[in-house]
């Protein structure tokens, strides 16, 4: 099976960028990372399907060997729909989190910090930053509406 090198490179770049973004603490970055990783996986399925062929419609004069395998496309479509639904839900969560806490970052778990003792100074800094609303990861302006609602 031969595969397009350009597609493989694109997939690698998408995976790398996606994983890098997913590792951040900002929710918006995680969403973007998820979108990149999702698209990279779709590309992987496309690459697996092999080089392009004729449309898989039974007609006179078309040999099955010339047709393109339709199953990977079906898999990709399903995966795209799922990714779309989950991103919509994530966006809703991010918006909700912004309204409530003015924070776009995920803070450390309090119970973990309590059990872990003094090792958590770094996390505390980040979470207190988020509580002031002056976190650098938060790029929105304006006041949270949660205090009023």
């Amino acid at each position: 099976m031969s595969a397009s090198l350009v597609l493989i490179l694109l997939m690698a770049v998408l995976y790398a960028g996606g994983v890098y973004l997913l590792l951040g603490r900002s929710m918006t970055r995680m969403l973007l990372g998820f979108l990149l990783v999702g698209n990279a996986t779709n590309l992987l399925i496309l690459i697996i399907a092999g080089p392009a062929g004729l449309a898989p419609i039974v007609a006179d004069g078309v040999e099955p060997s010339e047709m393109h395998d339709p199953l990977p496309e079906a898999l990709i479509l399903t995966a795209i729909v799922i990714t779309f639904g989950v991103s919509a839900f994530l966006l809703a969560l991010i918006y909700r989190s912004w309204r409530i806490a003015r924070a776009d970052v995920v803070t450390s778990d309090e119970a973990d910090v309590a059990v872990g003792g003094a090792d958590s100074s770094i996390d505390d800094e980040e979470s207190s930053e988020a509580e002031d609303g002056s976190g650098e990861d938060t790029e929105f302006e304006g006041r949270a509406e949660a205090k009023t609602s």
Partner: peptide
């Protein structure tokens, strides 16, 4: 999903 792609 990636493993399914590779298995396929």
């Amino acid at each position: 999903l990636a493993s399914i792609a590779m298995i396929y």
